[in-house]
Amino acid sequence: MGCIESLKYEIILRDASFTECRDYIRSSCREYVDVDPGFKIFDKHIIGVPPISIGFEGDVIIFPFTKPCYGTFLMRIEDHDEAERIRKSASRKKK
């Protein structure tokens, strides 16, 4: 997972589909943004079928992370600066 692997993360869903991750974020997070594939999060280009939803719980970021052999993980990572950067740079805000 590169630099994401070195962060303190929590896995919410394992071997999920991209639609399961999007549905979880949209139904569970009071705040979320939609981004396009290739959007950078923790210095990695996000993989997925657009629109890709990224959720927030304060400084906690909830986002899908896809690996070829392991499918998609839905992850939680707390990072104030990255959460603020995503909020500012994501084009479409929801809720």
């Binding site: 991209f18 594939p37 290739g38 993989i47 997925g48 657009p50 070829p68 392991y70």
Partner: peptide
């Protein structure tokens, strides 16, 4: 994504959900 490389054709091998995600990403980028 950073337009450092470009290819005329992108052949994506898909047998699972992750493959679809990669194909969608390449198409969107």
């Amino acid at each position: 994504a950073e337009t450092k490389r470009a290819f005329d054709y992108h052949f994506i091998f898909i047998h699972n959900d992750a493959g679809v995600s990669y194909a969608a990403t390449v198409q969107a980028i």
